[in-house]
């Protein structure tokens, strides 16, 4: 067998759904789950259950903020259904996660489909400034717009905007705050953010991709989450260069083969979908992952800012004047 570059290991967890509804024991379950995975997986993708019919569960971004202080190493990529919520609130929630976790935050840009998308729009109502529930192209465009607006807000404070300068009696250098003045297809957003620039500058943005299903978001993301079978198609896209390919695979006994296949196809990372029981996470952390490491398929989890651990370049601030 050809040798492969060990993959970055992540996990995908669902904040909603039957296993993670809000019934009793919920805090304990998440505490032991994240405890088992901390230091084992490089990151956890927390899929949000907005309007999920089998249990909408907790808000994933708030769950991530709660988990961050009790799991000091794992990256936390929180999901948000961007067509249904305010980009401004999402931007500050993820920026706050980056401050709380000291640089381990990410955002999964979720695009709801089918009956769940319809249910989600029924839950917020028909509102100006939102894309039409049934217009797939408009929803795709709106996701891309929302990501763009969120990223601009993260840059809207320069790193050194807070000056605390007694001489001029100024706390802030207003010249280092910037209007983002974003004009999307269905909404405008002026800015700047209320939250100072997050430690990573730009928290990680992840998005799913499948052929023919609205693909702008994944191409503008840092992480493209996709099925192993779709890696070749994604790589053939002209704009696929910047996103790091993350193969999402199910936890099953073909895991070893699937990882090798993903690596050979060009994935740099893998996100293993777990059902979310603490017992499963224990087995995964204590048995599966050591075996995967021994086989040279995944690399050990590192520490520090998630962006650096994923091998992504430092994020320059688009608004900062060139030095």
């Amino acid at each position: 067998m050809t040798s492969i570059e060990p993959l970055i290991l992540g996990v995908t967890l669902h904040a909603g759904g039957p296993a993670h509804g809000l019934a009793g024991g919920w805090r304990e379950r998440w505490t032991s789950l994240i405890g088992a995975l901390d230091g084992v997986a490089e990151f956890a993708v927390l899929e949000d259950g907005f309007a999920r019919p089998d249990g909408d569960g907790p808000d994933a971004a708030l769950l991530a903020n709660w988990l961050a202080p009790r799991a000091p190493r794992i990256g936390l990529i929180a999901g948000a259904a961007l067509n249904l919520v305010e980009p401004f609130h999402v931007s500050t929630a993820i920026a706050t996660l980056d401050h709380v976790s000291e640089g381990r935050a990410g955002l999964l840009a979720q695009r709801l489909r089918g009956p769940r998308n319809a249910a989600a729009f029924a839950a917020i109502g028909r509102l100006n400034g939102f894309a039409e529930a049934g217009n797939e192209a408009a929803l795709d465009r709106d996701i891309t717009d929302a990501i763009d607006a969120i990223r601009r807000l993260w840059d809207s404070w320069e790193d050194d905007a807070v000056i605390r300068d007694a001489g001029t009696q100024r706390y802030l250098d207003g010249g280092k705050l910037h209007y983002v003045d974003f004009a999307g297809e269905v909404f405008r957003l002026l800015g700047p953010s209320i939250t100072p620039r997050p430690p990573q500058g730009q928290p990680i943005v992840a998005a799913r991709w499948a052929p023919g299903a609205g693909d702008g978001a994944a191409a503008s993301a840092d992480l493209a989450l996709l099925d192993v079978a779709h890696i070749a198609a994604f790589k053939a896209r002209p704009d696929a260069e910047r996103a790091l390919i993350v193969a999402e695979i199910a936890e099953s006994d073909i895991l070893f083969a699937a990882l090798r296949q993903a690596a050979e196809a060009g994935a740099r990372a893998v996100s293993v979908a777990l059902s979310g029981t603490p017992e499963e996470a224990q087995v995964f952390a204590n048995r599966t992952v050591p075996a995967l490491r021994a086989a040279g398929l995944v690399r050990p989890a590192a520490e520090g800012p998630l962006r650096r651990r994923l091998g992504l370049p430092a994020a320059p601030n688009r608004y900062a004047a060139a030095a």
Binding site: N65, R70, A95, L97, V100, R170, P192
Partner: peptide
Amino acid sequence: RFHELDVAGRPNTLAILSALASV
């Protein structure tokens, strides 16, 4: 212009309260 003389900037309210709930 942005008001420069006072403290400015804050976290997302619900996010920071969730983090505080943890500690």
